[in-house]
C-alpha cells in the first residue's frame, strides 16, 4: 500500500457571516496517495475552494482533521504573476517567502523553467507572454520550492478552449514527469477524466464525497489521447449523471 500524502478525516467546516452560518463541508473524508493525481468535481457552490483552502492549511476545519505529509504548492485560476517582476523574479517568489533564496534553489527553479520551455522568457514581463505561457510560468513558480502536494484550483478555467487543451497537456506532462502528487478541483468533467487517476464526486452543500472512481486508462496519461480513448465518453456520462442526479 502506498503512502498517503493528504488525508481528510471526517472534516466539517462552517462559514460564519453576520446573517447566517453555512456548513460548507460535513463528514468529508478522503485521501490522496503519494504520486497520485486526484480530481474533485462537484456542483457549483459546493465549497470546492474551501476544500483546497483546508488542504493548504489556510483554513482550520471546524471539526475533524486534515493531515498533510509535506509541503503544499497552490495554483489558482489565474496565473497571478506579479506584473512588475520578470518571469525569473516571479518564479523565485516562493523561495523568497520561505527564505530559501539561495543560488542552488534559484538555479533549480531556473532549470525547471528552461526544461519546460520558458528559458527564452526569463527576462520578459508577464504582459509579454501569452495566457498559456503565463499559466506554465505559474506552475513553475508553484514547483520552485519542490512541494510534495500540488493543489490546483481550476487552473485552466480562465483560458480559451484551444489554449486550455494545450496547457492541460503541458501541465499534465510536467506533473507526471516530476512525479508530483496533485489534487485538482474543477467543474469541468472532461478535464477531470483526461487528467486524473481517481475522480471524487462531491455532493451538494454541505459537501461530502458522494462517489469515488478509479479511472481505468492504465498507462495512458496524455490528456488529449485520453479524450480520444474509447472509455472516455462512458466515464463522462456516468460522472454527468452523478453530478446532476
Amino acid at each position: 500500500m502506498r503512502k498517503e500524502s493528504l488525508r481528510f478525516f471526517d472534516v466539517t467546516h462552517i462559514y460564519h457571516t453576520v446573517r447566517a452560518e453555512t456548513t460548507a463541508a460535513e463528514h468529508l473524508s478522503f485521501s490522496v496517495n503519494e504520486g497520485e493525481f486526484v480530481a474533485i468535481i462537484g456542483p457549483s457552490g459546493c465549497g470546492k475552494t474551501t476544500l483546497l483552502s483546508l488542504a493548504a492549511g489556510l483554513l482550520e476545519p471546524s471539526g475533524g482533521e486534515v493531515m498533510r505529509c509535506g509541503s503544499c504548492g497552490y495554483m489558482l485560476q489565474k496565473d497571478e504573476l506579479f506584473p512588475w517582476r520578470t518571469i525569473e523574479k516571479n518564479i523565485v517568489i516562493p523561495l523568497e517567502i520561505k527564505r530559501q533564496n539561495t543560488p542552488e534553489h534559484r538555479e533549480r527553479a531556473k532549470a525547471l523553467a528552461v526544461k519546460y520551455g520558458l528559458g527564452d522568457f526569463l527576462q520578459s514581463y508577464p504582459s509579454q507572454l501569452s495566457g498559456g505561457m503565463r499559466q506554465r510560468a505559474a506552475l513553475i513558480r508553484t514547483l520552485a520550492t519542490d512541494p510534495d502536494i500540488l493543489l490546483l484550483d481550476e487552473p485552466f478555467s480562465a483560458l480559451d478552449y484551444q489554449t486550455r487543451l494545450n496547457v492541460t497537456e503541458d501541465v499534465s506532462k510536467i506533473i507526471r514527469s516530476e512525479g508530483k502528487t496533485a489534487l485538482l478541483i474543477t467543474h469541468d468533467i472532461s478535464e477531470a477524466i483526461s487528467l486524473a487517476d481517481r475522480v471524487l464526486v462531491l455532493s451538494e452543500r454541505p459537501a461530502h464525497v458522494a462517489y469515488t472512481h478509479t479511472l481505468d486508462f492504465g498507462e495512458l496519461t496524455n490528456p488529449l489521447k485520453r479524450r480520444e480513448a474509447p472509455g472516455f465518453s462512458g466515464w463522462f456520462e456516468l460522472l454527468w449523471k452523478e453530478l446532476n442526479g
Partner: peptide, 24 residues
C-alpha cells in the same frame, strides 16, 4: 487572490506587505 497565493506559500503579513501590497 495574490494575497491568497502568498499565504499559501506561508508568507507573513510583513512579507505580503513588502512583496505585494506596496509594489502593487
Amino acid at each position: 487572490n495574490k494575497i491568497l497565493l502568498l499565504r499559501s506559500m506561508g508568507a507573513s503579513k510583513a512579507q505580503i506587505l513588502i512583496k505585494l501590497v506596496i509594489p502593487s
